[in-house]
Design a protein around this nucleic acid. Structure first.
Length: 772
DNA sequence: GAGTTTGAAACT
DNA sequence: CAGTTTCAAACTC
């Protein structure tokens, strides 16, 4: 009478089935035969019954699929569900014991609690076998540890529903009919299934008793973590934190798969065993007819432990099993961090997690929003800006090379990033930020460090804009040659002991690493006190010393990500003081940061393309598109193709501008913003509507008398073609810095509020009209 | 790789 | 705050 897959082995975290309890040598068999059920349920309609066992002391042999993970996963309860009559010693023995010793079991100390919760009655009558199905369906849903997320509800396949309905109606349908029925509806979405199931369940008026039982059973089962089980604690590290693992059965079968997988599924337990013995026919009877339990197990309704199944599939050559893996999703939660399943009704379009997906990858991939770095902000210093950029793009890749391992300097001090959006500051888990500095979670710090191990890759070139790492030439070249722009920032300090802002590592709030070429370095964790003290001293002199050198104009956020990425929307916090470089070399921090010079700059002969001279360059490009536009494009290190792909390398020098091979501006400007796109980022545009601020730098002169025309064009462009989001007051009335014909910058009277903000004071917007 | 240039940081 | 020095990265050869 007992069928293997009808033995639900309940753990504190879920349910599973271990193996065929009907096998004489089965540990389940042997164990169950020694127990008395704490509760026996009789199905009035079929004269069948099933038993609820409580394992006060779970046998070592009975372990769940999670058994390799945690002792907590040991089976604590079992439910034997009835099926087709079958001579079975176990059944007989259990029934004998049930009749004779049930009371004793109820009175036992071991079972007192559970029995008490369960109720006084030793038996419960259940009217229909369909209701028995609901037990299978509802049990996991009722499990304590499965609560809380919509995914944790078992999905009931159409096949199950169909079968259930069929049985409720008291009719028998053939397997072929079932298959047909299932196939017919197989393309239904998971949501519909869920919703329909719920509706159906609600509409079923005949299951009051059964639901009561479920509730009671749920209570019993969910309280299955009594103090008695404390000895089981100490989860294994290898485990996927079984503490909150939950299973979700789902149906991910495509119609095409059905026939092929049906056979397999018919032999597949409702819940996989840990050894993935999916192919082992458990239905020893070989019954041609598929009864309801078969369909459940065949089911198209299987709970899968993701990792195991995934790994299983990775090594499995059998197409069937691959299909099975493809059809199934797993959902498991991890204490606090929820591993989200990828429930998908279309397994083909959305295949499950890659076989090689690790838990971490799973987490990263499936929980992008939960990633603590996902909302990192423009960080602190160059490195952290890079972090922010990386995190922003959700390309947080843990590059755990030894050379890149870097530990952030944990300082009790906080920067007052006046220009950082508060939300960013909140979410930014930098040690420089108190949220993490004050945290005792070293793990968090480590993760932060891991997430930003390659801060140097991006310098401060805005979001997604990368400059070559500012490491020693040798290394830089090596890295460049290798095509790896993810190199780490390394300093080469000789005299500063890496305790001054000269040191890039220190300035970025990072400890030096072994790969640094510094000498007498004190910027290491072992000198933490010294480092922190030095930091305090520096911050006492300049509270913003460790603030990002390039700050973003967060107010542009309302225009979307693109504007946020606009290089011109960011400014160097202090401005440069270049004299000879023309702000065209990386000596210039503005240039290095990929931002235009601003009011706060005191540079001479500024030719920063992101600054006013950029307009002249662009103008030149208009006049001589075959040449100048090339320069413009190449200056940004962006070819036509590159424009569409971010992360290009900026020019090393203006010399390269002349040497660069680029395409005509006309081509490179295909998108409206393209000529000044910086890695696809739209710069801001000057507007005559609001007189640009007076330019303090005398060299910031526009020599081209026709520039006004250009600006006029630009203005028109902004009015005519600017996306709506750019047409707001922000665009035309914000502080706009631009080169005016008289070489003076005029502050807009309308940008009062913005000018009070250091971040906005230097903002400008360049909007270019596309040239036909 | 050595030397030079450059500009920020540090110092006075 | 300005001038000077120190420093290390960027750059050139």
């Amino acid at each position: 009478m007992w069928r293997s897959f009808e033995c639900l082995l309940i753990t504190r975290h879920g349910y599973t089935r271990q193996e065929d309890p009907t096998q004489p040598d089965s540990p389940v068999f042997n164990y169950l035969s020694t127990l008395s059920p704490i509760r026996t349920f009789n199905l009035s309609s079929s004269a069948q019954s099933f038993h609820l066992f409580n394992f006060a002391s779970p046998p070592s042999a009975l372990t769940s699929p999670l058994n390799n993970c945690s002792k907590d996963s040991k089976i604590t309860r079992a439910i034997l569900l009835p099926d087709e009559p079958k001579n079975n010693n176990l059944q007989n023995r259990i029934e004998d014991r049930s009749a004779g010793t049930l009371n004793a079991a109820e009175q036992s100390d071991v079972h007192d609690e559970e029995v008490g919760n369960f109720g006084s009655g030793g038996e419960a009558n259940v009217s229909t076998s369909a209701e028995a199905l609901k037990l299978v369906i509802e049990l996991p849903k009722s499990l304590k540890y499965d609560s809380g997320s919509p995914e944790n509800k078992i999905s009931l396949s159409d096949s199950v529903k169909t079968e259930t309905e069929s049985n409720v109606a008291g009719t028998e349908i053939s397997s072929a009919e079932l298959v047909q029925s299932v196939t017919k509806d197989a393309d239904r979405s998971f949501e519909n299934e869920m919703g329909e199931q719920r509706i159906q369940m609600e509409q079923n008026k005949e299951v009051c008793d059964w639901e009561k039982f479920i509730d009671e059973a749920s209570d019993i089962l969910s309280c299955g973590t009594p103090s008695k089980e404390k000895h089981q604690e100490e989860p294994d590290e290898k485990c996927v934190d079984s503490g909150t693992l939950s299973f979700v059965a789902t149906v991910l079968q495509s119609p095409n798969d059905f026939d092929d997988t049906k056979k397999m599924d018919s032999a597949c337990p409702l819940i996989f065993s840990e050894n993935h013995d999916m192919d082992t026919p458990l239905n020893k009877s070989g019954a041609a007819k598929t009864n309801e339990a078969d369909l459940i197990s065949a089911g198209k309704s299987c709970a899968v432990l993701t990792e195991e199944v995934v790994n299983y599939s990775s090594t499995e050559q059998d197409d069937k099993q691959q299909k099975m893996t493809r059809r199934r999703c797993l959902v498991y939660e991890m204490s606090g961090t929820h591993y989200r399943k990828l429930l998908d009704s279309s397994p083909i379009s959305k295949p499950p997690v890659s076989p090689n997906t690790s838990k971490e990858k799973c987490l990263a991939a499936n929980k992008p929003g939960s990633n603590k770095f996902s909302s990192l902000v423009p960080g602190i210093g160059l490195h952290l800006n890079a972090i922010a950029a990386t995190a922003k793009n959700k390309i947080i890749v843990k590059r755990q090379t030894l050379t890149c391992r870097r530990q952030l300097i944990s300082s009790p001090h906080t920067i007052t990033s006046m220009d950082l959006p508060s939300s960013d500051i909140k979410s930014f888990n930098s040690p420089i930020v108190p949220s993490l500095a004050g945290s005792d979670s070293n793990e968090q710090k480590d993760e932060v460090v891991q997430a930003i191990q390659n801060p140097c890759q991006s310098s401060v070139f805005g979001e997604g804009i990368e400059f070559p790492p500012s490491s020693p030439k040798k290394k830089r070249r090596k890295l460049e040659n290798s095509g790896d722009d993810d190199s780490c920032k390394r300093c080469n300090c000789k005299r500063s002991k890496c305790l001054k802002l000269y040191c890039e590592c220190f300035a970025a709030g990072l400890y030096c690493v072994d790969s640094c070429n510094c000498q007498d370095c004190l910027n290491k964790p072992i000198h933490e006190e010294t480092v922190l003290e030095t930091r305090r001293q520096i911050e006492s002199r300049n509270p913003l010393a460790f603030a990002p050198k390039v700050i973003r104009c967060s107010s542009t956020a309302h225009n979307g990500d693109e504007l946020e990425k606009t290089p011109a929307s960011a400014r160097h916090k202090r401005g440069c003081n270049c004299k000879k470089s023309g702000c065209l070399k990386k000596y210039c921090e503005c240039f290095q940061g990929g931002v235009g010079c601003s009011l706060s700059c005191r540079c001479e002969g500024c030719k920063n393309t992101f600054g006013p001279e950029g307009i002249a360059i662009f103008r030149e490009a208009q006049i001589e598109p075959e040449e100048s536009s090339i320069n413009v494009s190449s200056y940004h290190g962006i070819s036509e193709t590159d424009v569409e792909h971010q992360g290009e390398v900026p020019p090393e020098s203006s010399k390269q501008l002349d040497q660069a091979n680029a395409k005509p501006l006309k081509q490179a400007r295909q998108p409206l913003w393209q000529p000044f796109l910086f890695n696809g980022i739209t710069p801001q545009i000057p507007s005559i509507a609001n007189p640009p601020p007076i330019q303090p730098c005398e060299n910031r002169v526009t020599e081209n008398p026709d520039e006004s025309d250009l600006i006029e064009d630009l203005k028109i462009a902004s009015e005519d073609e600017t996306p709506e989001v750019l047409k707001g007051d922000y665009l035309l009335s914000t502080c706009v810095k631009s080169a005016s014909p008289n070489c003076k910058r005029v502050s807009s009277p309308h940008c009062h509020d913005f000018e009070t903000s250091p971040g906005w004071r230097s903002c400008r917007k360049l909007i270019l009209r596309s040239i036909p």
